[in-house]
Each structure stands twice: as structure tokens, then as C-alpha cells.
Simulated scan of single mutants.
Amino acid sequence: MVTIDENVARWAATPIPLGHPGFCLTALVLGPNEIPRILDVAQAQQTPELAVLGVMAHGKDEEPERAVEMAKAALIACHDLPDDRALPYSELVLLSLNQAAKIILEKLMASGQFEYQSDFARKHRGEGEAIGVAKGEARAILSVLEARKVHVPDEVRQRILACTDHTVLERWIRRAVTLASTDELFCDT
């Protein structure tokens, strides 16, 4: 049995008498005391699952800086894993940190000092940035129309906000400056 809870580990390790004299079942238990804290990236890369398990077992109880070091090692170790394992492991790492460590790690990641290691993370970070830009362009269109006092029906507002194609959004921004009604916004698209 593997558990990150010390009480569960003690309970599971309790011998179970089987009714025959001298026969007792004692489960093999791997609890938090047996799970290492992996801070070294090279070691984490050799056993990424163990690095993630270490964060799960100790991430909430450690000093924030040490928890962040374990989390960084585990996240970097996920670099070479297939996406179907890297994403859930990364989620487990982030969910396993105490609040102070989460804040430090999020600031580090936002500062640009944390180098995203995997193509997966870079791809999804880039997609997130592109979606953010698209949302900004959509809000700009709505702001221009509002400033010009052009009525924007709800379905038009929803269509504008749902669009993520930068070429289309740029065309709509240019049109929003001169159009008389929102019907002109979508012609030729």
C-alpha cells in the first residue's frame, strides 16, 4: 500500500491475525516517512513518479522554499514524459503544495525565471497567451462600438467574444471604427 497519510500508514501496517496460530498478515506499506523528498533535478528525472509522490507526501508540510524546490524538480522531471502523464503529474504537484509555496511557485513561473521544460507546457502556455490576446482584441471591438454608441445585440457580443482568430478580429476592429450597424461587422467572414 502507498499512502501520503501517516495515520493511514500506521493503520495499514497493523498485523491482521488470520485465525490460525502463528499466521498473521502484515501489509507492505509505503507511507510518508518512507517517501523521499527529491530536490535534485537529475535524481527527479531518473524517477519522475517518485519525485511527484514526494511532493504529494511532503509539499504541504515543508517550508515553502523547500517545497518549491521539490516542486520545481518534479515539474522539470515531467519534461520527458508523454503528455497524458505529464499533465496529471503537474496538476498533482501544484495541488500538493501549501499556500505559501504555491504563491512562490506561481510568482516564479510568472516572472519568466522558471523555464518551461516541456513542449507540452510551452505549447499550452503559448495557447493561453494567444487566447488572452484574442480576448483583448474582442473587448477592444466592443469598446469601439460602445464609444461610437452602436447597438450590440447579445448574440453579436457573444460571437465577438467567442472568436479566437486574430486575422478576423483585426478585420472586425478596423470595421468597428466606421460601420453604421453590427450587421456590417460580419460581411465576408
Rank of each mutant, 00 (worst) to 15 (best):
A44Y: 08
R66H: 11
E155L: 04
P15F: 07
E34V: 00
A51V: 13
V152H: 01
L179S: 11
A73V: 05
A130V: 03
E115A: 14
K102E: 07
L185G: 00
T3S: 14
V41M: 03
S181E: 14
R159W: 10
A86C: 06
I141R: 00
G128E: 12
G31W: 10
A9H: 02
I131Y: 00
K60L: 12
S181M: 06
V68H: 02
E69K: 15
V55W: 04
L50T: 08
Q113C: 09
V29Q: 12
R66V: 13
D61K: 14
M56V: 14
L97M: 07
Q45H: 08
V29E: 08
K60W: 09
P36I: 01
N98M: 05
E62N: 10
V150A: 04
T47A: 13
H20W: 05
L81P: 01
V177K: 06
P153S: 09
E115M: 10
S118Q: 01
E49G: 15
F186W: 13
P64C: 12
R148I: 00
L169C: 12
A110E: 11
F186M: 09
E69T: 10
E184M: 14
R85P: 00
R37W: 01
P48H: 07
L161T: 12
V150H: 01
T182N: 08
G59T: 11
L39P: 04
R148A: 05
E63Q: 15
S111C: 13
V168H: 10
I35S: 04
L95Y: 07
L185P: 02
F120H: 03
L53P: 05
G136M: 13
A57P: 13
G22T: 00
A42M: 10
D188A: 08
C24K: 03
P17E: 11
L75P: 02
F23R: 09
